[in-house]
């Protein structure tokens, strides 16, 4: 096979653009395995389409985030749900057509947790219902403003809840405080981790770290069985806002230490220059 001709034929672009028939697609995928040059070419083309998609991003309406999370929660609930979504302003959502894969096997939840979920659903249904009937009484314009207020209120409540959580956490005895201290002589650098062994939740605060030079970012690590596991690249905003507490999305089951290293922008698979370490 002449790889150069193959690449220049345009078929790989057609593959990325989704313009091939099933058969053609399978053929390209088989060839990709044999010839890494093809896979490279496809990856480069996909990267361009990705940049293109990013350049054309469009923010969905704010209520979608909660609505989608609710939908995800509902599908893993038993079927005897009494239609818990009457009040969303959106039209009834078609059931997602995802039948080919079973939902991931979630561990059985304790019954108090179930009860809590149902109570939350009931409260949410009730709240939504009340909001809806309230809204119906008002004119369209007012209704719109009300809904804006609602979402503002919700986000405010969320912030307040986060804040309260932060305070509760500090008095929580199962919460471990790990201070990461500077590994660079002469440089004062500290960061702090709060970690709950019980829930796996953890929070990061940068206390004093110099702003990384251009093209560099800090990266957070968990040292687990002697190996560094990346917990993510730290946004420079967090470095600039010393003292701000940020919840780590990744769950931490256990480990021996937390560390912060300086890496190239976007992070590295393993730490290169360790700045601060704190043993758990």
């Amino acid at each position: 096979m002449n790889i150069k001709e193959y690449i220049e034929s345009g078929i790989l672009e057609a593959y990325v653009l989704g313009a091939l028939t099933e058969g053609e697609r399978a053929a390209v995928e088989a060839d990709m395995v044999m010839y890494p040059e093809l896979a490279q070419e496809i990856a480069a083309t996909e990267a361009a389409m990705q940049s293109f998609a990013e350049a054309n991003a469009e923010e969905p309406p704010a209520h979608m985030q909660q609505q989608i999370w609710n939908a995800i929660q509902q599908q893993s609930s038993p079927q005897s749900v009494p239609e818990p979504q009457p009040a969303q302003e959106a039209k009834p959502q078609p059931q997602p057509k995802v039948v080919e894969f079973a939902p991931p096997a979630a561990p059985a939840r304790p019954s108090w947790q179930r009860a809590a979920v149902w109570a939350a659903v009931a409260v949410s249904v009730l709240t939504n219902f009340m909001l809806l009937s309230q809204r119906n009484k008002t004119k369209d314009e007012i209704a719109q403003m009300t809904s804006q207020m609602d979402s503002l209120k919700a986000s405010q409540q969320q912030v307040l809840a986060e804040y309260k959580k932060g305070r509760d956490m500090l008095v929580d005895t199962s919460m471990k405080t790990v201070v990461m201290r500077s590994m660079q002589p002469g440089k004062e650098m500290t960061g702090m981790m709060f970690w709950s062994k019980v829930t796996g939740e953890s929070y990061l605060t940068i206390h004093a770290m110099p702003m990384p030079e251009k093209g560099k970012q800090y990266q957070l690590w968990l040292i687990q069985d002697g190996k560094p596991v990346s917990m993510g690249v730290i946004d420079n905003n967090l470095v600039a806002n010393a003292g701000m507490m940020y919840k780590i999305p990744m769950q931490v089951k256990g480990g021996q230490a937390f560390a912060i290293s300086l890496e190239k922008e976007g992070g590295n698979p393993t730490p290169t220059e360790v700045m601060a370490v704190g043993a758990i």
Partner: peptide, 24 residues
């Protein structure tokens, strides 16, 4: 609140497999 941590592709997969609301 702006996301303060970013994840690489591999880390994102690990994160999503945790199936938590934070991950979502």
């Amino acid at each position: 609140m702006a996301p303060a941590l970013t994840y690489s592709e591999e880390e994102l997969v690990v994160l999503l497999k945790q199936q938590s609301q934070d991950a979502f």
